[in-house]
Amino acid sequence: MKKILPIIIACATGLTILAGYFFQDRLAPILGLLINWGIVLVGLAGLIGIAYLVRMHIFRIAHRQKGGFYSVIVLLAFLFTLIAGLILTPQNAFYRDWVLNIQTPVEASLLAVLSVTLLYASLYLVRTRGWTPMSVGFLVGALVSLILNLAVFQFQPGSRGEVWALVLRRLPLAGLRGILIGMALGGLIVGLRVLLAVDRPYEGE
């Protein structure tokens, strides 16, 4: 029973949700309930994950491990944001500024650092991948897209040039569509494996 119950729950939940794609009108309220419960659990899981994050940093400080000083920063920032948020609520103007004025510069700067990493990486296409059909395709795709992004060429609406430019833009769509179909296939199999209890991640398998 200890083993069977999770399997039954996983299969029953999954099949009900799946049936919702077919009998949506009839099952809608049940499906809504299941989705809401799922949201609660994901939210709670997020909170537990954060608890592990906090515990890791407390552990570091307590055991004077490497990086303990930074852990103090994490914990102070966490506690301040948590307490302020619970007292002021996220709608508060100061709280919004506190969160966004830290998140925006750090996140945007990380992306700025990434731009340099990508710039540097662009030197290494052939060195890393060699001359293969895929690397040639990559080069062509990247160059065409970047040149069109530059918008140095002007096109009159309806002109032959515009038509060709649009065709060039759409050329990578074939590959993208192939990838999308392929991974939808993969997703289907992964999902079915859970629904058929072949994969049981909840049991550590």
Partner: peptide, 15 residues
Amino acid sequence: MVIVLLLVGLLFPVQ
């Protein structure tokens, strides 16, 4: 700049 670097990268030998 990235276009230029992609093209310069073509001169690198294949590893």
